[in-house]
Amino acid sequence: MRVSTRFSDAIHLLAYLKIYADTKLTSDAIAASIETSPVVVRRIMSQLRRAQLITTIPGTAQPQLAKPLDQISLLNVFYAVEGDKPLFAVDPKTNPQCIVGGNIQSVLSQYYQDAQTAAEARLAKTSLQDIVDSLLVEQAKQDAHQ
């Protein structure tokens, strides 16, 4: 099973919009940074626009953040691109005649719910400002070593 990268790609896209705000922000340029196709970028931008995290004007290459970075949490971004999909899923097809197969769904469900709750709380506390600040710190470290 392939793990979705929409969430990290959406964070990447939003950080890119902030850091490169003074450039032409085409879907091709953003796609080159994410190393994906412009179609994927446009699809993610559409989800972010519906969630009111960005604004766009048809026919222009200037998408903008709809709110200050510190007012956009990673949980907002997650919900924008993943909806309310759970982070973890229990296999519903197990052998009910087996001790493990007959009980694994109910046992794992609570552990998974606890993990989901903790992850959502952490994502809610982390803003895009935190991400952009960390990106700039990392770049400064790289620049210092050159």
Score class of each variant (00 low, 15 high):
residue 104 I to Y: 08
residue 11 I to A: 02
residue 110 Q to P: 00
residue 29 A to W: 00
residue 107 V to I: 15
residue 138 E to T: 06
residue 25 L to H: 09
residue 105 Q to D: 12
residue 111 Y to N: 06
residue 16 Y to M: 04
residue 82 E to N: 14
residue 75 L to K: 13
residue 1 M to S: 11
residue 138 E to W: 02
residue 47 Q to M: 08
residue 106 S to H: 09
residue 35 E to V: 12
residue 130 D to W: 00
residue 82 E to S: 15
residue 16 Y to D: 13
residue 146 Q to L: 10
residue 118 A to H: 10
residue 38 P to F: 11
residue 122 R to H: 08
residue 27 S to P: 00
residue 125 K to L: 05
residue 118 A to V: 05
residue 35 E to N: 15
residue 127 S to D: 00
residue 71 Q to D: 11
residue 91 D to T: 15
residue 125 K to T: 04
residue 99 I to R: 12
residue 7 F to C: 03
residue 75 L to W: 14
residue 40 V to S: 09
residue 64 Q to Y: 04
residue 66 A to P: 08
residue 144 A to M: 05
residue 120 E to N: 13
residue 94 T to G: 03
residue 138 E to D: 12
residue 45 M to K: 15
residue 66 A to F: 08
residue 122 R to K: 12
residue 108 L to C: 12
residue 2 R to S: 06
residue 89 A to F: 13
residue 16 Y to F: 14
residue 46 S to V: 03
residue 5 T to S: 10
residue 135 L to Q: 06
residue 49 R to K: 14
residue 88 F to C: 06
residue 18 K to V: 07
residue 26 T to R: 05
residue 124 A to F: 01
residue 35 E to S: 14
residue 71 Q to R: 13
residue 13 L to Y: 02
residue 64 Q to N: 14
residue 71 Q to P: 00
residue 87 L to K: 01
residue 110 Q to W: 01
residue 63 P to W: 10
residue 83 G to F: 10
residue 57 I to A: 11
residue 76 N to T: 11
residue 123 L to T: 00
residue 131 I to W: 10
residue 31 A to Q: 01
residue 80 A to K: 11
residue 143 D to W: 10
residue 6 R to Q: 08
residue 67 K to W: 14
residue 13 L to S: 07
residue 126 T to M: 09
residue 77 V to A: 03
residue 119 A to D: 01
residue 51 A to K: 07
residue 89 A to Y: 15
residue 133 D to V: 07
residue 22 D to E: 11
residue 77 V to S: 03
residue 107 V to Q: 09
residue 24 K to Y: 03
residue 122 R to I: 03
residue 19 I to S: 05
residue 73 S to I: 01
residue 67 K to D: 04
residue 99 I to P: 04
residue 2 R to L: 12
residue 11 I to Q: 01
residue 8 S to A: 01
residue 85 K to S: 11
residue 128 L to W: 01
residue 47 Q to V: 00
residue 39 V to Y: 04
residue 28 D to V: 15
residue 58 P to C: 06
residue 47 Q to H: 10
residue 130 D to V: 09
residue 133 D to M: 05
residue 86 P to A: 09
residue 131 I to E: 04
residue 140 A to K: 13
residue 116 Q to W: 01
residue 54 I to F: 00
residue 120 E to S: 08
residue 61 A to G: 03
residue 14 L to D: 04
residue 119 A to R: 11
residue 91 D to C: 15
residue 100 V to P: 01
residue 117 T to V: 04
residue 64 Q to D: 12
residue 65 L to A: 10
residue 116 Q to E: 15
residue 111 Y to R: 08
residue 20 Y to V: 12
residue 4 S to D: 14
residue 25 L to P: 03
residue 87 L to I: 07
residue 28 D to C: 01
residue 34 I to D: 00
residue 112 Y to G: 04
residue 76 N to K: 09
residue 89 A to E: 15
residue 38 P to C: 06
residue 97 Q to M: 05
residue 76 N to S: 14
residue 40 V to K: 12
residue 72 I to W: 07
residue 39 V to A: 13
residue 73 S to V: 03
residue 123 L to V: 00
residue 111 Y to T: 05
residue 134 S to D: 11
residue 103 N to Y: 01
residue 65 L to C: 05
residue 133 D to C: 02
residue 94 T to P: 02
